[in-house]
Design a binder for these strands. Structure first.
Length: 455
DNA sequence: TGGGGTTAT
DNA sequence: ATAACCC
């Protein structure tokens, strides 16, 4: 085993870094991570909104797709991202609800994250329906409290991957076992407080926790012991099933003759680095061994807010109407959040038969006089904001020529907390909206942004 | 494929 | 601004 492969778990010397904190030498640096994955999340939210839907096959529809469905529907052959026509053909009794407005899903999603944050503040969101929690510290505390008290409390909650026996003399096993108990408490709390069911996977890193959470499906949990990690990763049929290896990388790996996890494990590191770059190569080759030293990074509040709609658009008027619609929703959201966005972005997708991913965007700073008016839920920001967005639009689309777009999206980002900065403090001079009058300010912060004043 | 999100370059 | 990744 190379020293690199071990470094994440057993640093040598005086101490190691574990989520930005030095842990004393001699203590174990092995982590306990849980991945929590809600069952068919949108469908669950819809069944809570309308209990009459419970027990019926239910699909959530966006445009012509069934993006997710409950287990009744799955038993009848409906799959995620299935065409509505195909789904109805497979399952004529299928009940469909429109899920294009994500508001209720988003709100419930954050309630789940907040609930998990009560267990430990180190919670990372992945989409709306998955969360990672680093339980390492919590497990340590429970171990100290429990010590010789009642060893009978040391029973695993839920499944153990491969039915591997637990060794109560192995401290790593004990720590993970306690993690499984916490995971069960989390799922109980989610059900009791929010009415939601989900799966959980407990393991020593994010990759393994995520992979193992899906082993027993719906509403169950699975613990992975270190001795079974190779079996778990080799149970994947193809490298494309490895989280972190996406569409593009899969294609490039296949071109190198790599299709199984073992292919990737045994492939020449040097050649892989030449082909994919050192960063991607080293990361995914570690993943292929089940190694993942990436920390659980607390997500905190969102970094951006966006609203999009896919639709046909071939005139400037259509674009403006849609932009106004998207913007109105966004302003409500931003108003509720409390923070203020300092950048706005417009994204388009052009019609084209081929081309897998074609999106273009333009962004610019939000003029400071508009930012100031943002909190007060008003219409007078609509008009100037639409003007800004239409300039971005014309910067991307030559409106004098025929065009055909299939999507418009508006995004607020670069969110900043409200002016808590006071005159005379460091913050004051570092807050553009406050100190900007005494120095042009225009090019001070975002050199890469398009400045509308420059047109 | 929808309607979102994130980080790295 | 784009490209990759995630759901």
């Amino acid at each position: 085993m190379s020293s690199a492969g071990r470094a994440d778990f057993r640093g040598s010397g005086g101490g190691r870094w574990v989520h930005d904190q030095v842990v004393p030498a001699g203590s174990s640096s092995s982590r306990v991570i849980v991945h929590v994955d809600l069952d068919c999340f949108y469908a669950q939210v819809e069944m809570i909104s309308n209990p009459e839907l419970k027990g019926k096959p239910l699909g959530v529809q966006q445009k012509y797709l069934v993006v997710t469905c409950n287990y009744e529907a799955r038993k009848l052959g409906v799959k995620k991202l299935m065409n509505v026509r195909d789904a109805k053909e497979k399952c004529p009794q299928l009940v469909l609800v429109n899920g294009e407005d994500l508001t209720r899903y988003r709100e419930m999603s954050y309630k789940v994250t907040e609930l998990l944050e009560e267990f430990s503040p180190i919670v990372e969101r992945l989409g709306f329906d998955e969360n990672f929690v680093d339980l390492t510290e919590m497990v340590e505390k429970r171990l100290e409290q429990l010590q010789s008290d009642e060893p009978s409390a040391l029973t695993v909650s839920g499944h153990v991957y491969d039915n591997q026996p637990i060794n109560l003399h192995d401290i790593l096993h004990i720590r993970l076992l306690i993690g499984s108990q916490i995971a069960a408490e989390m799922r109980e709390a989610m059900y009791n407080q929010l009415g939601l069911t989900g799966c959980a996977g407990v393991a020593s890193n994010k990759l393994l926790a995520k992979l193992v959470s899906g082993i027993f499906k719906p509403n169950q949990q699975t613990l992975l012991l270190p001795e079974s990690s190779q079996d778990l990763i080799h149970s994947l049929n193809h490298i494309k099933e490895m989280p972190g290896i996406g569409y593009k990388t899969t294609k490039r790996l296949e071109a190198l003759g790599i299709s199984s996890v073992r292919d990737l494990q045994t492939f020449s590191s040097k050649i892989l680095e030449k082909e994919l770059g050192i960063s991607v190569a080293q990361r995914i080759q570690k993943l292929s061994f089940g190694e993942d030293n990436s920390p659980v990074t607390p997500s905190g509040p969102p970094q951006s807010f966006s609203e999009e709609d896919s639709f046909k658009c071939s005139s400037e008027v259509e674009a403006k109407n849609k932009i106004e619609e998207l913007l109105a929703s966004l302003l409500n959201r931003v108003c509720q959040d409390g923070r203020k966005p300092h950048t706005i972005r417009l994204i388009i997708r052009r019609y084209s038969s081929e081309k897998h991913y074609n999106r273009e965007s333009r962004q610019c700073p939000i003029p400071s006089h508009i930012i100031q008016k943002l909190g007060i839920g008003n219409y007078d920001v609509m008009t100037p904001m639409v003007d800004v967005l239409m300039k971005l639009f014309r910067n991307m689309v030559n409106v004098k020529m025929p065009f055909h777009l299939t999507l418009l999206s508006v995004c607020f980002c670069n969110l900043k907390a409200l002016n808590t900065a006071k005159k005379g403090t460091i913050d004051y001079y570092l807050t553009p909206s406050l100190s900007t009058t005494s120095r042009s300010g225009k090019h001070s912060f975002k050199m890469k942004d398009t400045h509308m004043e420059d047109f």
